[in-house]
């Protein structure tokens, strides 16, 4: 069994690429953030390793798919890369426990790994999101922004479904009538908007709307020192 370096590279690359596609499709709004978490990297490693192991198995058993030479070698590489993906995502049989049917197979392992990725990404993004929202919505006046800011963001996006808009309208309606501090309302508005339109669009919208949605007179600084500008 002889596997050349570029064959290793290709088969591992295929496995990793499929893993990357999985994660990107799961976290469309901020895929780069999601890919940077440790569980995501482990998930990609598992995908790459599974592809490599499949290639080793194919070569060890001598499955040449009826081909010869370089064609057989590359077919084996492709089969390993894509076959590992299928193998990892398949449940081999189902076990019934009471009323529940539990699938048994590698997909259980992959699902639990994706669950860990979900939690890690959510933790990481929650922190980033909280910081970004606090910064972006700092001086936003909820009463002024409640309708103008989402409408402007949706106008920028242009493709938000009617269903999402309807749901968002409910949220804003709830916030408007809620007995809460305006700062909390602004933060919640910003959080929900960020989920839909992303950090950059929200930032751009707040900047563009400027004074129309900002608190008229910001609270004076507690110290007596002259301000820089």
């Amino acid at each position: 069994m002889n596997i050349l370096w570029y064959e290793w590279l290709t088969v591992i690359g295929l496995g990793v690429l499929i893993g990357v596609t999985d994660i990107i499709s799961r976290y469309r709004d901020e895929p780069d953030n999601a890919l940077g978490t440790l569980p995501s990297i482990f998930y990609l490693f598992v995908n790459g390793a599974a592809s490599a192991l499949t290639l080793v198995s194919i070569r060890a058993f001598g499955w040449d798919f009826g081909l010869q030479g370089q064609t057989a070698a590359w077919t084996q590489v492709l089969a390993a890369g894509l076959g590992a993906m299928a193998l990892l995502r398949t449940s081999l049989w189902n076990v019934r426990v009471g009323e529940e049917t539990i699938p048994i197979g590698f997909n259980r392992f992959l699902d639990s790994l994706l669950g860990t990725v979900d939690r890690a990404v959510d933790r990481k993004r929650a922190q980033q999101r909280a910081e970004a929202v606090t910064k972006t919505m700092k001086n936003v006046d909820f009463d002024k922004a409640a309708q103008a800011l989402p409408a402007y963001c949706f106008g920028l996006l242009q493709n938000l479904s009617a269903e999402e808009q309807e749901k968002f309208g409910r949220k804003v309606g709830l916030l408007v009538a809620a007995p809460m501090n305006n700062r909390v309302k602004s933060l919640l508005l910003g959080l929900s908007l960020m989920n839909l339109v992303g950090e950059k669009v929200l930032e751009t919208a707040v900047t563009n709307l400027g004074a129309d949605i900002l608190i008229a007179e910001p609270a004076p600084l507690p110290d007596d020192e002259p301000r820089g500008q």
């Binding site: 949706f154 309807e166 968002f168």
Partner: peptide, 25 residues
Amino acid sequence: DFGTFLSSVNRAMKQEKNGSSQISI
């Protein structure tokens, strides 16, 4: 692009007369 949103907010605000949002919170 945002007409559905505005209609939805208006509808939600009209329904908010019975104090249910306090309960929601």
